[in-house]
Design a protein around this nucleic acid. Structure first.
Lengths: 257, 257
DNA sequence: CTACAAATATCACATTATGAAAAAGAGGCT
DNA sequence: AGCCTCTTTTTCATAATGTGATATTTGTAG
């Protein structure tokens, strides 16, 4: 009896182990791992050993705990879209960050969410921001996400909305679909999105989408700053640079306006 | 009959599929994938579907080819050592790159090799260099690798050497162990390593190791440049900054001199 | 419309993964 | 030391699981 069409027990389990290990910065003992995954110790041992033999995990000789090696990092960096986007975008993003003297983010759409691919920060601008390369966030609560969402076909946007577990991160978070539809119209009308403390209190950002050769919004760029430094006037001042940057990157991906 | 102790066929196979897909920037059709992995189409289909259902791969609707999503990128970025090192090192590396106006690399040791974690480049300094974040290289042919190797216990260094398939990348590549032992002594004596076109013709670099709380050389930093810009005088000029940088990072990891 | 190729689904079979139980290690306490 | 407890590793009989030949569907080109 197979649980669902196209499911292989041992693989389901080993992937769960991989993901569990990835969230344990200090590593996990075999029994921790078995407890966390609800697998028998014996089974866990066998599976984590397979990961070890393939170089994905190792057993720290001093602590005796299992943790991930850089193998997943290596493979993750090879994902083609990372390459394509980063090589096209990096110089532009560094330039934008230097020009604005604020943190600049590049994200790519991945399924129902977005993943941060790059973060350019001006020197010593040490504002604590929860974003970092590799982080996955939903679309509805971030400037970058909303800018992408607004350019998708309505049914696709709705599907993404419905698949998301809507959380109220701050008082400003958009939590109903009608509100989001109005927001998406505003974004399309002005050509950029604003995240006004919708995900993190105290952080405001402006964002715009990058389009590929087919015109699809595959990625986005944002400029983020504490509200104190990001008032209406500042946003208007930074906007042209942001829009120029996403245009230049879009063109490098083959987009024709 | 199990092929080797601690081996699970379906997992071995799915990992091979994952790795194969990671090297195919344009994606692969099911039959391509089956051919590349020597698996039956039917089996390949089942396994790649498991990856798809877990969000690691997707089937591009226009081309019909399978490729990896950003899931591995996401998980790879969570690997704890990446976090620890990068957060400690990033500002120092950016500063070093700005100061030297040359490309700066941060690598971490992973098993028998090194993996590039970060690359800081001064503006518009577009020299083609094969290195990029996520790349894995052997130790014997890179400055960063040699600087780490030189601080390992002799038996460990020898084990790494023996496990490596030694390739002659350039006329300067060190290809015999006695030569490497002498080189390691030189590196220990002066406190830094030089890669004098040993991996790539035309690229010279200076490198030094980062030590953790236990004194182990877990990572390294290098400054790379075309030979034309990296003569003896330049190296002597850049060295203090490099050594100061690795010292600062080592201290942040708890190393006491 | 037909033919061919590629992708997906089905299913009987035995190979393969499973987990109980036993063995081997690693500390901790008297 | 020696004993006890907890954790990790190995073993092995069992049947549940993954396998791949075959069938079906889908897609593409002539």
């Amino acid at each position: 009896m197979r649980s669902s069409p196209g499911s292989v027990q041992s693989i389901d389990r080993v992937l769960e182990i991989l993901e569990t290990l990835s969230t344990a910065p200090l590593g996990m003992s075999l029994s921790d791992l078995a407890a966390a995954t609800n697998l028998h110790v014996s089974t866990t041992h066998r599976l984590v050993n397979v990961l070890t033999e393939h170089g994905y995990a190792l057993k720290d000789s001093s602590s005796g705990k299992y943790r991930l090696t850089l193998r997943t990092f290596e493979i993750g960096s090879r994902v083609s879209s990372v390459w394509n986007l980063l090589s096209a975008a990096k110089p532009h993003l560094d330039e934008l960050a230097a020009e604005c003297q604020e943190a600049v983010h590049l994200v790519e759409r991945d399924g129902m969410g977005i993943v941060y691919l790059y973060k350019a920060e001006p020197f010593q601008q040490l504002v604590r921001m929860s974003s970092h390369v590799g982080l996955r966030n939903p679309m509805y609560c971030t400037g970058v996400g909303k800018s992408i969402l607004s350019l998708l076909p309505q049914d696709e946007a709705e599907e993404i909305w419905n698949n998301e577990e809507i959380q109220t991160f701050t008082p400003n978070t958009i939590t109903t679909f009608p509100d989001m539809i109005r927001e998406m119209e505003r974004i399309r009308a002005r050509g950029y999105a604003i995240d006004d403390e919708e995900h993190e209190v105290g952080v405001r950002c402006i964002a715009a989408a990058i389009r590929n050769w087919a015109g699809n919004p595959v990625a986005a760029v944002s400029i983020s700053a504490p509200v104190s430094r990001m008032d209406e006037a500042t946003m208007q001042r930074l906007l042209p640079s942001l829009l120029r940057t996403v245009d230049e990157i879009s063109r490098m991906l083959g987009h024709r306006a």
